[in-house]
Design a protein around this nucleic acid. Structure first.
Lengths: 224, 224
DNA sequence: TCATATAAGATAGTAAAACTATCATAATAA
DNA sequence: TTATTATGATAGTTTTACTATCTTATATGA
Protein backbone atom coordinates (compact mmCIF):
# COMPACT_ATOMS: atom_id res chain seq x y z
CA UNK A 1 0.00 0.00 0.00
CA UNK A 2 1.31 3.37 -0.91
CA UNK A 3 0.20 6.35 1.10
CA UNK A 4 0.41 9.83 -0.23
CA UNK A 5 0.35 12.94 1.88
CA UNK A 6 -2.19 15.44 0.68
CA UNK A 7 -2.21 18.89 2.21
CA UNK A 8 -5.31 21.00 1.77
CA UNK A 9 -4.20 24.48 0.82
CA UNK A 10 -6.08 27.75 1.28
CA UNK A 11 -7.88 28.57 -1.98
CA UNK A 12 -6.95 32.23 -1.78
CA UNK A 13 -3.31 31.39 -2.22
CA UNK A 14 -3.65 30.54 -5.89
CA UNK A 15 -5.74 31.31 -8.96
CA UNK A 16 -5.64 27.75 -10.20
CA UNK A 17 -4.74 24.83 -7.94
CA UNK A 18 -1.16 23.80 -8.77
CA UNK A 19 -1.69 20.30 -7.41
CA UNK A 20 -4.28 19.55 -10.07
CA UNK A 21 -1.97 19.63 -13.09
CA UNK A 22 1.50 18.71 -14.25
CA UNK A 23 2.37 22.32 -14.97
CA UNK A 24 1.16 23.35 -11.53
CA UNK A 25 3.37 20.75 -9.84
CA UNK A 26 6.29 21.85 -11.96
CA UNK A 27 5.75 25.43 -10.82
CA UNK A 28 6.02 24.42 -7.17
CA UNK A 29 8.95 22.10 -7.72
CA UNK A 30 11.00 24.51 -9.81
CA UNK A 31 10.18 27.58 -7.77
CA UNK A 32 11.52 25.86 -4.67
CA UNK A 33 14.69 24.97 -6.53
CA UNK A 34 15.11 28.45 -7.99
CA UNK A 35 14.49 30.26 -4.71
CA UNK A 36 16.93 27.90 -3.04
CA UNK A 37 19.54 28.62 -5.69
CA UNK A 38 19.25 32.39 -6.11
CA UNK A 39 17.19 33.63 -3.18
CA UNK A 40 13.71 35.09 -3.18
CA UNK A 41 14.73 38.61 -4.20
CA UNK A 42 16.20 37.60 -7.53
CA UNK A 43 13.52 35.01 -8.19
CA UNK A 44 11.19 36.06 -11.03
CA UNK A 45 8.33 34.43 -12.90
CA UNK A 46 10.27 34.93 -16.12
CA UNK A 47 13.22 32.87 -14.86
CA UNK A 48 10.83 30.29 -13.44
CA UNK A 49 9.03 30.02 -16.77
CA UNK A 50 12.30 29.55 -18.64
CA UNK A 51 13.36 26.92 -16.12
CA UNK A 52 10.15 24.98 -16.59
CA UNK A 53 9.90 25.52 -20.32
CA UNK A 54 6.68 27.45 -20.25
CA UNK A 55 5.82 31.14 -20.44
CA UNK A 56 5.41 33.88 -17.87
CA UNK A 57 1.70 34.10 -18.64
CA UNK A 58 1.47 30.41 -17.84
CA UNK A 59 2.72 30.99 -14.30
CA UNK A 60 0.40 33.94 -13.77
CA UNK A 61 -2.55 31.66 -14.42
CA UNK A 62 -1.64 29.84 -11.20
CA UNK A 63 -0.30 32.57 -8.93
CA UNK A 64 -1.10 36.26 -8.67
CA UNK A 65 2.52 37.14 -7.91
CA UNK A 66 5.69 35.72 -6.46
CA UNK A 67 4.82 36.74 -2.92
CA UNK A 68 1.66 34.64 -2.98
CA UNK A 69 3.73 31.77 -4.28
CA UNK A 70 6.11 32.22 -1.34
CA UNK A 71 3.21 32.12 1.11
CA UNK A 72 1.94 29.01 -0.65
CA UNK A 73 5.28 27.29 -0.24
CA UNK A 74 5.64 28.41 3.36
CA UNK A 75 2.10 27.29 4.17
CA UNK A 76 2.78 23.92 2.69
CA UNK A 77 5.91 23.66 4.83
CA UNK A 78 4.12 24.63 8.03
CA UNK A 79 1.24 22.26 7.36
CA UNK A 80 3.69 19.49 6.66
CA UNK A 81 5.57 20.28 9.88
CA UNK A 82 2.36 20.16 11.86
CA UNK A 83 1.55 16.84 10.28
CA UNK A 84 4.96 15.52 11.26
CA UNK A 85 4.57 16.86 14.78
CA UNK A 86 1.23 15.09 15.06
CA UNK A 87 2.52 11.80 13.73
CA UNK A 88 5.71 11.86 15.78
CA UNK A 89 4.12 12.78 19.10
CA UNK A 90 0.88 10.89 18.78
CA UNK A 91 1.31 8.07 21.23
CA UNK A 92 3.77 9.75 23.55
CA UNK A 93 2.25 10.24 26.97
CA UNK A 94 4.94 12.30 28.65
CA UNK A 95 4.50 15.85 27.39
CA UNK A 96 8.13 16.70 28.18
CA UNK A 97 9.27 13.95 25.85
CA UNK A 98 6.72 15.23 23.37
CA UNK A 99 8.13 18.75 23.48
CA UNK A 100 11.66 17.46 23.02
CA UNK A 101 10.46 15.61 19.98
CA UNK A 102 8.95 18.80 18.61
CA UNK A 103 12.15 20.77 19.11
CA UNK A 104 14.09 18.15 17.26
CA UNK A 105 11.62 18.16 14.38
CA UNK A 106 11.90 21.94 14.14
CA UNK A 107 15.64 22.22 14.36
CA UNK A 108 17.10 19.29 12.47
CA UNK A 109 17.20 18.36 8.85
CA UNK A 110 14.47 16.05 7.76
CA UNK A 111 14.84 12.37 7.21
CA UNK A 112 12.87 11.94 4.02
CA UNK A 113 10.13 9.88 5.62
CA UNK A 114 6.87 10.49 3.83
CA UNK A 115 7.31 10.82 0.13
CA UNK A 116 5.51 13.75 -1.37
CA UNK A 117 6.02 13.27 -5.03
CA UNK A 118 7.01 16.69 -6.11
CA UNK A 119 8.60 18.48 -3.16
CA UNK A 120 12.15 18.11 -1.92
CA UNK A 121 11.65 18.63 1.79
CA UNK A 122 15.29 19.29 2.62
CA UNK A 123 15.63 22.09 0.14
CA UNK A 124 12.27 23.37 1.32
CA UNK A 125 13.52 23.43 4.90
CA UNK A 126 16.50 25.50 3.83
CA UNK A 127 14.49 28.07 1.95
CA UNK A 128 12.04 28.50 4.81
CA UNK A 129 15.01 29.22 7.09
CA UNK A 130 16.22 31.99 4.80
CA UNK A 131 13.00 33.29 3.28
CA UNK A 132 10.15 32.13 5.51
CA UNK A 133 9.75 35.31 7.54
CA UNK A 134 9.39 37.35 4.35
CA UNK A 135 5.98 35.74 3.93
CA UNK A 136 4.58 37.85 6.76
CA UNK A 137 7.05 40.72 7.18
CA UNK A 138 5.13 42.97 4.81
CA UNK A 139 2.91 46.02 4.93
CA UNK A 140 -0.08 43.90 3.93
CA UNK A 141 0.32 41.28 6.64
CA UNK A 142 -3.04 42.17 8.21
CA UNK A 143 -5.05 41.77 5.02
CA UNK A 144 -3.22 38.54 4.25
CA UNK A 145 -3.97 37.40 7.77
CA UNK A 146 -7.66 38.16 7.31
CA UNK A 147 -7.56 35.85 4.29
CA UNK A 148 -6.25 33.16 6.67
CA UNK A 149 -3.02 32.87 4.72
CA UNK A 150 -0.98 32.24 7.86
CA UNK A 151 -3.31 29.68 9.39
CA UNK A 152 -0.88 26.75 9.05
CA UNK A 153 1.81 28.73 10.86
CA UNK A 154 -0.57 29.80 13.59
CA UNK A 155 -1.96 26.27 13.93
CA UNK A 156 1.50 24.85 14.39
CA UNK A 157 2.29 27.51 16.95
CA UNK A 158 -0.96 26.85 18.81
CA UNK A 159 -0.24 23.13 18.85
CA UNK A 160 3.21 23.64 20.34
CA UNK A 161 1.71 26.10 22.82
CA UNK A 162 -0.67 23.35 23.94
CA UNK A 163 2.17 20.93 24.53
CA UNK A 164 4.00 23.58 26.54
CA UNK A 165 0.90 24.06 28.68
CA UNK A 166 0.69 20.30 29.16
CA UNK A 167 4.20 20.41 30.56
CA UNK A 168 3.33 23.19 32.95
CA UNK A 169 -0.26 24.49 33.06
CA UNK A 170 0.88 27.50 35.04
CA UNK A 171 3.43 28.74 32.53
CA UNK A 172 2.41 32.23 31.49
CA UNK A 173 3.75 32.53 27.94
CA UNK A 174 3.00 29.33 26.01
CA UNK A 175 2.28 30.97 22.67
CA UNK A 176 5.19 33.39 22.77
CA UNK A 177 7.50 30.59 23.79
CA UNK A 178 6.14 28.49 20.92
CA UNK A 179 6.77 31.19 18.34
CA UNK A 180 10.18 31.77 19.87
CA UNK A 181 11.09 28.10 19.46
CA UNK A 182 9.89 28.02 15.87
CA UNK A 183 11.70 31.18 14.82
CA UNK A 184 14.87 30.44 16.73
CA UNK A 185 15.10 26.92 15.36
CA UNK A 186 15.43 28.65 12.01
CA UNK A 187 17.38 31.76 12.92
CA UNK A 188 20.04 29.99 14.95
CA UNK A 189 20.54 27.69 11.99
CA UNK A 190 20.89 30.63 9.59
CA UNK A 191 23.25 32.40 11.98
CA UNK A 192 25.31 29.26 12.57
CA UNK A 193 25.92 28.92 8.86
CA UNK A 194 26.19 32.56 7.83
CA UNK A 195 26.91 34.81 10.80
CA UNK A 196 28.39 32.30 13.22
CA UNK A 197 29.56 34.84 15.81
CA UNK A 198 25.91 35.39 16.67
CA UNK A 199 25.77 31.85 18.01
CA UNK A 200 27.73 29.39 20.14
CA UNK A 201 27.77 26.77 17.40
CA UNK A 202 30.15 28.34 14.93
CA UNK A 203 32.93 25.80 15.19
CA UNK A 204 31.22 22.52 14.61
CA UNK A 205 28.09 23.79 12.88
CA UNK A 206 26.11 21.03 14.48
CA UNK A 207 22.33 21.18 14.41
CA UNK A 208 22.16 19.08 17.54
CA UNK A 209 23.74 21.94 19.46
CA UNK A 210 20.84 24.11 18.41
CA UNK A 211 18.53 21.42 19.72
CA UNK A 212 20.45 21.40 23.01
CA UNK A 213 20.28 25.19 23.27
CA UNK A 214 16.54 25.25 22.59
CA UNK A 215 15.85 22.43 25.04
CA UNK A 216 17.84 24.23 27.71
CA UNK A 217 15.98 27.47 26.97
CA UNK A 218 12.54 25.91 26.94
CA UNK A 219 12.78 23.55 29.87
CA UNK A 220 14.46 26.09 32.13
CA UNK A 221 11.55 28.42 31.43
CA UNK A 222 8.66 26.04 31.95
CA UNK A 223 10.14 24.17 34.88
CA UNK A 224 7.72 24.55 37.75
CA UNK B 1 26.36 72.61 26.23
CA UNK B 2 24.84 70.65 23.39
CA UNK B 3 26.12 67.18 22.73
CA UNK B 4 25.61 65.50 19.43
CA UNK B 5 25.83 61.81 18.86
CA UNK B 6 28.06 60.89 15.96
CA UNK B 7 28.12 57.32 14.76
CA UNK B 8 31.00 56.22 12.61
CA UNK B 9 29.60 54.21 9.73
CA UNK B 10 31.35 51.58 7.62
CA UNK B 11 32.64 53.27 4.45
CA UNK B 12 31.56 50.37 2.27
CA UNK B 13 27.94 51.09 3.00
CA UNK B 14 27.83 54.20 0.85
CA UNK B 15 29.44 55.79 -2.20
CA UNK B 16 29.35 59.26 -0.70
CA UNK B 17 28.95 59.86 3.03
CA UNK B 18 25.35 60.98 3.59
CA UNK B 19 26.26 62.67 6.87
CA UNK B 20 28.49 65.16 5.06
CA UNK B 21 25.80 67.01 3.13
CA UNK B 22 22.28 68.28 3.38
CA UNK B 23 21.12 66.06 0.55
CA UNK B 24 22.71 63.07 2.21
CA UNK B 25 20.90 63.73 5.48
CA UNK B 26 17.65 64.20 3.60
CA UNK B 27 18.15 60.82 1.95
CA UNK B 28 18.42 59.10 5.33
CA UNK B 29 15.58 61.04 6.89
CA UNK B 30 13.15 60.57 4.02
CA UNK B 31 14.05 56.97 3.33
CA UNK B 32 13.24 56.08 6.94
CA UNK B 33 9.90 57.84 6.61
CA UNK B 34 9.10 56.23 3.27
CA UNK B 35 10.06 52.72 4.36
CA UNK B 36 8.00 53.22 7.49
CA UNK B 37 5.03 54.33 5.43
CA UNK B 38 5.04 51.85 2.55
CA UNK B 39 7.41 49.07 3.57
CA UNK B 40 10.78 48.17 2.10
CA UNK B 41 9.43 46.20 -0.87
CA UNK B 42 7.57 49.11 -2.40
CA UNK B 43 10.29 51.60 -1.50
CA UNK B 44 12.13 52.85 -4.60
CA UNK B 45 14.80 55.44 -5.27
CA UNK B 46 12.43 57.16 -7.68
CA UNK B 47 9.80 57.69 -4.99
CA UNK B 48 12.50 58.75 -2.54
CA UNK B 49 13.87 61.28 -5.03
CA UNK B 50 10.42 62.73 -5.64
CA UNK B 51 9.83 62.91 -1.89
CA UNK B 52 13.07 64.83 -1.36
CA UNK B 53 12.79 66.94 -4.48
CA UNK B 54 15.90 65.61 -6.15
CA UNK B 55 16.52 63.06 -8.89
CA UNK B 56 17.09 59.33 -8.92
CA UNK B 57 20.65 59.85 -10.11
CA UNK B 58 21.20 62.06 -7.09
CA UNK B 59 20.38 59.20 -4.73
CA UNK B 60 22.56 56.78 -6.64
CA UNK B 61 25.54 59.03 -5.98
CA UNK B 62 25.15 58.17 -2.29
CA UNK B 63 23.99 54.57 -2.29
CA UNK B 64 24.59 51.72 -4.68
CA UNK B 65 21.08 50.37 -4.22
CA UNK B 66 18.22 50.29 -1.79
CA UNK B 67 19.50 47.20 -0.02
CA UNK B 68 22.73 48.96 0.93
CA UNK B 69 20.67 51.85 2.20
CA UNK B 70 18.68 49.42 4.35
CA UNK B 71 21.88 48.00 5.82
CA UNK B 72 23.09 51.55 6.43
CA UNK B 73 19.92 52.38 8.35
CA UNK B 74 19.99 49.10 10.27
CA UNK B 75 23.67 49.57 11.14
CA UNK B 76 22.98 53.03 12.41
CA UNK B 77 20.19 51.61 14.56
CA UNK B 78 22.33 48.84 15.99
CA UNK B 79 25.22 51.20 16.72
CA UNK B 80 22.86 53.59 18.40
CA UNK B 81 21.39 50.75 20.47
CA UNK B 82 24.82 49.66 21.56
CA UNK B 83 25.59 53.22 22.55
CA UNK B 84 22.41 53.37 24.61
CA UNK B 85 23.20 50.03 26.20
CA UNK B 86 26.64 51.33 27.15
CA UNK B 87 25.35 54.60 28.57
CA UNK B 88 22.47 52.99 30.43
CA UNK B 89 24.43 50.18 32.04
CA UNK B 90 27.69 51.96 32.64
CA UNK B 91 27.77 52.34 36.38
CA UNK B 92 25.53 49.44 37.25
CA UNK B 93 27.46 46.85 39.22
CA UNK B 94 24.93 44.06 39.41
CA UNK B 95 25.00 42.31 36.05
CA UNK B 96 21.47 40.97 36.53
CA UNK B 97 20.18 44.51 36.85
CA UNK B 98 22.29 45.36 33.83
CA UNK B 99 20.73 42.62 31.74
CA UNK B 100 17.25 43.69 32.76
CA UNK B 101 18.14 47.16 31.62
CA UNK B 102 19.27 45.81 28.27
CA UNK B 103 16.07 43.84 27.75
CA UNK B 104 14.03 46.95 28.44
CA UNK B 105 16.10 48.98 25.99
CA UNK B 106 15.59 46.34 23.32
CA UNK B 107 11.90 45.77 23.79
CA UNK B 108 10.36 49.13 24.59
CA UNK B 109 9.83 52.25 22.57
CA UNK B 110 12.50 54.85 22.98
CA UNK B 111 12.22 57.91 25.10
CA UNK B 112 13.77 60.48 22.82
CA UNK B 113 16.83 61.06 24.97
CA UNK B 114 19.76 61.99 22.80
CA UNK B 115 18.80 64.19 19.93
CA UNK B 116 20.24 63.14 16.64
CA UNK B 117 19.30 65.92 14.33
CA UNK B 118 18.02 64.02 11.38
CA UNK B 119 16.73 60.65 12.58
CA UNK B 120 13.40 59.93 14.23
CA UNK B 121 14.36 57.10 16.52
CA UNK B 122 10.85 55.86 17.17
CA UNK B 123 10.03 55.44 13.54
CA UNK B 124 13.43 53.86 13.07
CA UNK B 125 12.68 51.34 15.80
CA UNK B 126 9.46 50.40 14.05
CA UNK B 127 11.07 49.86 10.67
CA UNK B 128 13.85 47.74 12.15
CA UNK B 129 11.19 45.53 13.72
CA UNK B 130 9.53 44.95 10.35
CA UNK B 131 12.46 45.19 7.94
CA UNK B 132 15.65 44.68 9.98
CA UNK B 133 16.13 40.99 9.25
CA UNK B 134 15.93 41.65 5.50
CA UNK B 135 19.35 43.30 5.81
CA UNK B 136 20.99 39.91 6.27
CA UNK B 137 18.45 37.36 5.00
CA UNK B 138 19.93 37.39 1.50
CA UNK B 139 21.97 35.17 -0.77
CA UNK B 140 24.93 37.58 -0.47
CA UNK B 141 25.02 37.65 3.32
CA UNK B 142 28.50 36.11 3.40
CA UNK B 143 30.07 38.67 1.07
CA UNK B 144 28.34 41.47 2.95
CA UNK B 145 29.60 39.99 6.16
CA UNK B 146 33.17 39.94 4.82
CA UNK B 147 32.79 43.66 4.18
CA UNK B 148 31.95 43.97 7.89
CA UNK B 149 28.51 45.34 7.10
CA UNK B 150 26.98 43.59 10.09
CA UNK B 151 29.61 44.59 12.61
CA UNK B 152 27.32 46.84 14.65
CA UNK B 153 24.78 44.04 15.01
CA UNK B 154 27.45 41.54 15.96
CA UNK B 155 29.06 43.98 18.40
CA UNK B 156 25.76 44.54 20.15
CA UNK B 157 25.18 40.81 20.32
CA UNK B 158 28.68 40.24 21.70
CA UNK B 159 28.18 42.92 24.31
CA UNK B 160 24.94 41.36 25.51
CA UNK B 161 26.61 37.95 25.48
CA UNK B 162 29.26 39.35 27.82
CA UNK B 163 26.66 40.61 30.26
CA UNK B 164 24.98 37.20 30.19
CA UNK B 165 28.30 35.56 30.99
CA UNK B 166 28.79 38.03 33.85
CA UNK B 167 25.49 36.82 35.27
CA UNK B 168 26.52 33.21 35.02
CA UNK B 169 30.03 32.36 33.76
CA UNK B 170 29.00 28.75 33.34
CA UNK B 171 26.08 29.38 31.02
CA UNK B 172 26.78 27.59 27.77
CA UNK B 173 24.95 29.67 25.17
CA UNK B 174 25.62 33.35 25.83
CA UNK B 175 25.78 34.41 22.17
CA UNK B 176 22.79 32.42 21.01
CA UNK B 177 20.79 33.68 23.95
CA UNK B 178 21.87 37.23 23.09
CA UNK B 179 20.76 36.94 19.48
CA UNK B 180 17.55 35.31 20.67
CA UNK B 181 16.78 38.25 22.95
CA UNK B 182 17.49 40.77 20.22
CA UNK B 183 15.39 39.04 17.59
CA UNK B 184 12.56 38.14 19.90
CA UNK B 185 12.33 41.65 21.30
CA UNK B 186 11.47 42.62 17.74
CA UNK B 187 9.48 39.60 16.58
CA UNK B 188 7.23 39.41 19.61
CA UNK B 189 6.46 43.08 19.06
CA UNK B 190 5.63 42.48 15.39
CA UNK B 191 3.52 39.44 16.25
CA UNK B 192 1.73 41.25 19.06
CA UNK B 193 0.64 43.98 16.67
CA UNK B 194 0.05 41.96 13.51
CA UNK B 195 -0.38 38.26 14.26
CA UNK B 196 -1.40 38.42 17.92
CA UNK B 197 -2.33 34.75 18.25
CA UNK B 198 1.37 33.96 18.02
CA UNK B 199 1.88 35.68 21.36
CA UNK B 200 0.34 35.96 24.82
CA UNK B 201 0.08 39.74 24.60
CA UNK B 202 -2.71 40.12 22.05
CA UNK B 203 -5.29 41.67 24.33
CA UNK B 204 -3.49 44.58 25.89
CA UNK B 205 -0.70 44.96 23.33
CA UNK B 206 1.63 46.03 26.10
CA UNK B 207 5.35 46.16 25.44
CA UNK B 208 6.05 45.62 29.11
CA UNK B 209 4.60 42.13 28.79
CA UNK B 210 7.21 41.39 26.18
CA UNK B 211 9.82 42.62 28.63
CA UNK B 212 8.36 40.33 31.29
CA UNK B 213 8.36 37.35 28.91
CA UNK B 214 11.96 37.97 27.87
CA UNK B 215 13.12 38.44 31.46
CA UNK B 216 11.42 35.22 32.47
CA UNK B 217 12.98 33.41 29.50
CA UNK B 218 16.48 34.76 30.07
CA UNK B 219 16.76 34.51 33.84
CA UNK B 220 15.27 31.04 33.99
CA UNK B 221 17.90 29.94 31.53
CA UNK B 222 20.97 31.51 33.09
CA UNK B 223 20.00 30.86 36.69
CA UNK B 224 22.79 28.81 38.21
C1' DT C 1 -18.58 11.02 -33.54
C1' DC C 2 -19.12 15.77 -32.98
C1' DA C 3 -19.37 19.77 -30.17
C1' DT C 4 -17.33 22.30 -26.67
C1' DA C 5 -14.92 23.43 -22.71
C1' DT C 6 -10.54 24.15 -20.82
C1' DA C 7 -5.47 24.24 -20.27
C1' DA C 8 -1.58 25.65 -22.15
C1' DG C 9 1.51 27.71 -25.76
C1' DA C 10 2.85 31.73 -28.49
C1' DT C 11 3.30 36.41 -28.99
C1' DA C 12 2.95 41.14 -27.93
C1' DG C 13 2.63 44.94 -25.24
C1' DT C 14 2.70 48.39 -21.02
C1' DA C 15 4.24 50.55 -16.83
C1' DA C 16 7.35 50.74 -13.45
C1' DA C 17 11.86 49.55 -11.27
C1' DA C 18 16.68 49.53 -11.28
C1' DC C 19 20.08 51.28 -12.94
C1' DT C 20 23.91 54.28 -16.13
C1' DA C 21 25.52 58.24 -18.78
C1' DT C 22 26.09 62.98 -20.04
C1' DC C 23 26.01 67.82 -19.75
C1' DA C 24 25.17 72.17 -17.42
C1' DT C 25 25.28 74.93 -13.40
C1' DA C 26 25.89 76.36 -8.65
C1' DA C 27 28.69 76.45 -4.61
C1' DT C 28 33.22 76.11 -2.50
C1' DA C 29 37.97 75.81 -1.58
C1' DA C 30 42.84 76.50 -3.16
C1' DT D 1 40.36 83.58 -10.20
C1' DT D 2 40.52 79.05 -11.23
C1' DA D 3 39.69 74.47 -10.31
C1' DT D 4 37.06 71.22 -7.95
C1' DT D 5 33.05 69.12 -6.49
C1' DA D 6 28.04 68.54 -5.65
C1' DT D 7 23.86 68.79 -7.57
C1' DG D 8 20.25 69.30 -11.16
C1' DA D 9 18.29 68.16 -15.54
C1' DT D 10 17.59 65.02 -19.01
C1' DA D 11 17.74 60.84 -21.43
C1' DG D 12 18.45 56.24 -22.13
C1' DT D 13 18.80 50.76 -21.20
C1' DT D 14 17.58 46.56 -19.25
C1' DT D 15 14.78 43.93 -16.28
C1' DT D 16 10.62 43.13 -13.62
C1' DA D 17 5.86 42.75 -13.05
C1' DC D 18 1.94 42.17 -15.12
C1' DT D 19 -2.07 42.05 -18.89
C1' DA D 20 -4.19 40.84 -23.26
C1' DT D 21 -5.15 38.13 -27.21
C1' DC D 22 -5.09 34.47 -30.26
C1' DT D 23 -4.21 29.69 -31.32
C1' DT D 24 -3.70 24.88 -30.54
C1' DA D 25 -3.91 20.60 -28.00
C1' DT D 26 -6.55 17.68 -25.03
C1' DA D 27 -10.22 15.92 -22.48
C1' DT D 28 -15.18 15.37 -21.67
C1' DG D 29 -19.80 14.27 -22.50
C1' DA D 30 -24.03 14.26 -25.26
Amino acid sequence: MELQLQIKMNEKLFLRNPEHSELGKKIILHSIQLIYKNGFESFTFRKLAEDIGTTEAGIYRYFENKHRLLIYIASWYWSWLEYRVTVNTNNIKDSVVKLKRVIKLLATVVEDDVKTSYVNENVLHQIIIAEGTKAYLTKHVSEDNKDQLFKPYKDLCAKIGEIILDCNPKYKYPKSLASTIIEMAHFQNFFMNNLPSLTDFGKDKDELKIVAFLEDLVFSSIKK
